[in-house]
Design a protein around this nucleic acid. Structure first.
Lengths: 220, 220
DNA sequence: GCATACATACCAACTAGTTGGTATGTTGCT
DNA sequence: AGCAACATACCAACTAGTTGGTATGTATGC
């Protein structure tokens, strides 16, 4: 797929418009016309770059994976030497991102999978890959923390990594229902507290005190 | 809204069809024709009972609230004398319900709000009411448990009640993405462990041992 | 004789996708 | 260098089918 000089301005603009529109209306409710209007591109250009609306959906999930993957890869939370600190710093970053309009912080893959999981196996798989691969970037740090602090709970690093994503996805749903990010922030705070508690006995032995570090506003 | 003698067989059939269809396709992707076909009712009947598709959505959220409200009201988890036991029994019930087809255990309100929160304030509000009122039925037990065990965490009973709903909603999203309920069960297990840990110091003082009670399969 | 609970037939607007075209490269041969 | 052959990126207008919604009719019970 040699990328030529002006390799499709239109494709990039459509994907960018897709991120916005899918997050606000979901995938099914986002029409091809709407996508084209928003991207200031014609329908011909749309079907030149994507053989169908479904193919666009798959490309949108992959685009989401790439852009968010790059964002998190270059974030500073990897800097901490302690693996548990890296996990907690990730949670703090996710909490800090819950700002501005709801459509600006919610997850394209999570939103899209809700109205496509039954009708489009291809989109479902692409969304699953996006979410699961992102979770996997956490898994190594969680596993390292378990090893370092000798935690032998009945839970696996991978299940905890996926749980963080479940909490975030659920927090987005509640934020949409309430039209307010506050409830999502509260939920992420509960998630942070959970991880602190999971590692608390071990870190106390080691003489660490991390509790309430990074804690901010707690409403109600 | 006086309920007349044979108060609309059609209305009930449409709402029942709506529960199924909204859970599988979402609200926007569910068409009025599909609803009518599934309920074996004509379009005339649909618009006789609901002034618009949006009004049907609001009615669907209210119907969901009523039916699930009744289900949980008559469940036995209220029986335990200890409030913490009641909260954990609720979690166990939610875990036990994660069986069969995905569309059979997911939440109508949570699914519907995802593709309507931006376009329909009325449906958004109805879904919020459904989720928030359900969370409130947990709040009293959580508050009682906090009081009984003298827990003074930086979290409120209401925020924890909403957090349980966020975890469940997120678990549904991941289950849809993976096409498998296992990931949702794992997440609910993490939620149960969190609540156990929140109350652990206090219950140990009191001589309770609840840990790992009710624990079942833990995959991976 | 009049309201309620439907049924049938229909419509204007919108839907994803198609068609046939153009403008601008890029490549390979001489 | 120069030109034919082809590829890419796009566009405007169209189509076949679907959408939520309506207009009008009818059957039944009080």
């Amino acid at each position: 797929m040699a990328i030529t000089a002006a390799s499709s301005d239109a494709r990039a603009k459509l994907l960018s418009a897709g991120m916005r529109l899918i997050r606000t209306h979901g995938f099914t409710a986002t029409t091809v016309d709407e996508l084209c209007d928003d991207a200031r591109v014609t329908k011909g250009a749309f079907f030149h770059h994507f053989v169908s609306k479904e193919a666009f959906g798959v490309a949108a999930a992959e685009h989401w994976s790439l852009t968010t993957g790059a964002l998190f890869a270059r974030a500073q939370y990897h800097a901490a030497s302690d693996p548990l600190d890296r996990v907690l710093a990730y949670i703090d970053l996710r909490r800090a991102l819950l700002r501005g309009a709801i459509a600006d912080f919610t997850c394209v893959a999570g939103t899209m999978v809700q109205d496509t999981w039954e009708s489009s196996p291809a989109i479902r798989a692409a969304c699953d890959a996006s979410i699961s691969e992102h979770a996997q970037t956490l898994e190594a740090d969680i596993a390292a923390a378990k090893r370092k602090y000798g935690i032998a709970g009945a839970w696996s690093a991978s299940s905890l990594a996926l749980h963080t994503q479940a909490v975030l996805q659920g927090a987005f749903v509640l934020a949409k229902a309430k039209g307010d990010a506050a409830v999502a922030i509260d939920s992420v705070d509960h998630l942070r507290r959970y991880i602190e508690l999971l590692f608390k006995p071990a870190t106390l032995k080691t003489g660490r005190t991390r509790m309430d570090k990074g804690r901010r506003r707690m409403k109600r």
